[in-house]
Amino acid sequence: MSVDTQADAPLLEVQGLSKRFGAIQACRNISFDLWPGEVIGIVGESGSGKTTLLNCISARLAPDSGRVLYRTRHEGPADLNGMSEPARRMLMRTDWGFVHQDPREGLRMRVSAGANVGERLMALGARHYGNIRAEALDWLGMVEIDQTRVDDMPRTFSGGMLQRLQIARNLVTRPRLVFMDEPTGGLDVSVQARLLDLIRGLVADLGLSAVVVTHDLAVARMLSHRLMVMWRGSVVETGLTDQVLDDPHHPYTQLLVSSVLQP
């Protein structure tokens, strides 16, 4: 993993973000910066607000208050809320990736594996069928899917393969920032390990920045440089991943860490 410690500005700045659903305060006044090459893990139990936070900072949900600034490639920091809808869509399709817990949400199940990967390239204007197919094949290889499966429908894939296909679909446009919501949730442990290792390698090789939501502290330890612990809509503790997990200070973090079963 490689944080760009020489970078001069953060890629994403979250300032005082709050979001409420009726009586429930899902996110309360959350601020943090994400730097180029950095992976932040958001941990906490179900209902702590971590997925809401992920949705708010990835422009999938509008916060009630606060700002999310993204440093675009050419025009510097831009407020996601002030951005035009086409500009935001373009960002989401090209510069960003979003890996859903359920790959079926992030894939198109009625088109082939190859088309799933090629689609985002076409959104970027690629038209040459041979090139798109070649790139799709490349990416299947990179996520360890047998290239002979390129014309197969995703429904014939196992859960782990679907998740790897979703990752290929996201990374083909070389995004700078990837959001992941429980990327290993719902997979067998053996499949999880392979996926984690794959994600770790790709994030480091491509110099990606990422925000990873997970309730699994082992996943957080393996993928992220820094952790934010959420509890009842607030961030109660932050720090380097090993600091938070090895020397937790907040009562909730201590409970979380001490509740993990050692195999």
Partner: peptide, 8 residues
């Protein structure tokens, strides 16, 4: 030190 500096 901020986390990035500690990493460095």
């Amino acid at each position: 030190a901020p986390p990035r500096q500690v990493i460095d």
